[in-house]
Amino acid sequence: MGRKPQKNDSLPGSLDMLILRTLSLRELHGYGIVQYLQQSSDNELLVEEGSLYPALQRLELNGWIEGAWGVTSSNRRARIYKITPAGRKQLAVETRKYARLTLAIARVMGEA
């Protein structure tokens, strides 16, 4: 109990990046984000669903996403999130970092 969501990820901070990436494509509500992540990763990425909400709060607090009440495709009231310009910059930063990291890991694994 009391574990932070990041600790559960194989790559620290990657949940934030994934959320930003998802929202950069379209505006979504919380459940929609989970669904998208699972579908687009062919169910390979299993997000601990509960961890999504603290992450959303954190991103919003940092000013990278904005949430507003709206209506989902299934016609239910929900908080719909969209990415902000600052969020796009952050996404770029994280993407670069991620690319470097995966490259580095790939090298290590390749040599092994």
Binding site: M1, G2, K4, P5, E48, E49, G50, S51, Y53, P54, L56, Q57, R58, L61
Partner: peptide, 15 residues
């Protein structure tokens, strides 16, 4: 989903 209470608190902790 996990522990709703704790997730809720975690989110609140963020603020």
């Amino acid at each position: 989903f996990g522990n709703v209470g704790i997730k809720h608190e975690e989110a609140r902790e963020i603020w």
